[in-house]
């Protein structure tokens, strides 16, 4: 491998622009209380991240993120929103400091880790020189397929992909259990009789 040195290249501006837009969208989502707007922004967030994936050479991921993240997820969230409420109520301020503390701790741990990270885009970084390059080298002769990602996905790490389909199946079963026939929806809504009874008994004691 050749020696690597980070140089300032114009692509930095593209990356910075995309990342800044992502950050602004995230902040807008945090602040907005119109759930419709939030859901739309989350679609935009996914689309922007798909664009960023292209800039990072991850075309398969960009494709999937655009289809699944910006497409299916947004549809799911839209229907979820339509079946519940359109507007978020203002929050009691009590919990924000605790949340901020947890988030800052997480962020600090990650920033701490970046100090020792190999430079962005370094071909000699362990992550890129170890197993990753082996896939690039072996796929051509072992699995005659031009797309290395597909080869790894379907063959070398095919078992993960089987697990992934199992996850989708599980989600299907879970949603059917929650919203399907016999889930105590509609005419047979969940009653809180049991809950009220517990409370009565609590007072009786």
């Amino acid at each position: 491998m050749s020696d690597f040195e980070t140089v300032f290249s114009p692509i930095v501006f593209l990356d910075l622009a995309l990342l800044t837009m992502l950050f602004l969208v995230a902040i807008a989502m945090l602040r907005s209380r119109h759930l419709f707007g939030v859901v739309m922004l989350s679609g935009i967030y996914s689309l922007l991240s798909a664009a960023f994936f292209v800039s990072l050479d991850a075309v398969d991921v960009a494709f999937t993120e655009a289809a699944v993240g910006a497409g299916i997820s947004t549809v799911l969230m839209l229907s979820g929103m339509l079946l519940t409420v359109r507007r978020e109520k203002p929050k009691t301020p009590g919990r924000a400091p605790v949340a901020m503390l947890a988030v800052l701790a997480t962020g600090a741990a990650l920033i701490y880790a970046t100090i020792d990270m190999p430079a962005f885009g370094d071909p000699n970084a362990p992550a890129n020189s170890a197993i990753g390059q082996q896939y690039v080298e072996r796929t051509a002769s072992e699995i005659p397929m031009p797309n290395i990602v597909t080869a790894v996905l379907a063959s070398y790490r095919g078992f993960d992909t089987m697990g992934e389909t199992m996850v989708i199946f599980t989600a299907g079963v879970a949603v059917m259990l929650l919203l399907g026939v016999g889930s105590a929806r509609g005419g047979r809504r969940v009653s809180d009789i049991d809950a009220k009874e517990t409370s009565d008994e609590g007072k009786g004691e």
């Binding site: 398969d60 991921v61 999937t64 993120e65 229907s79 992934e164 996850v167 989600a171």
Partner: peptide, 24 residues
């Protein structure tokens, strides 16, 4: 490096599955 792409393709699907169950 193709390996992170493969991992994330799996993770995107897992994420959407979680979203679906959470919304339900």
């Amino acid at each position: 490096n193709p390996l992170p792409h493969v991992l994330i393709l799996t993770a995107i699907v897992v994420g959407v599955a979680t979203t679906a169950v959470g919304l339900a």
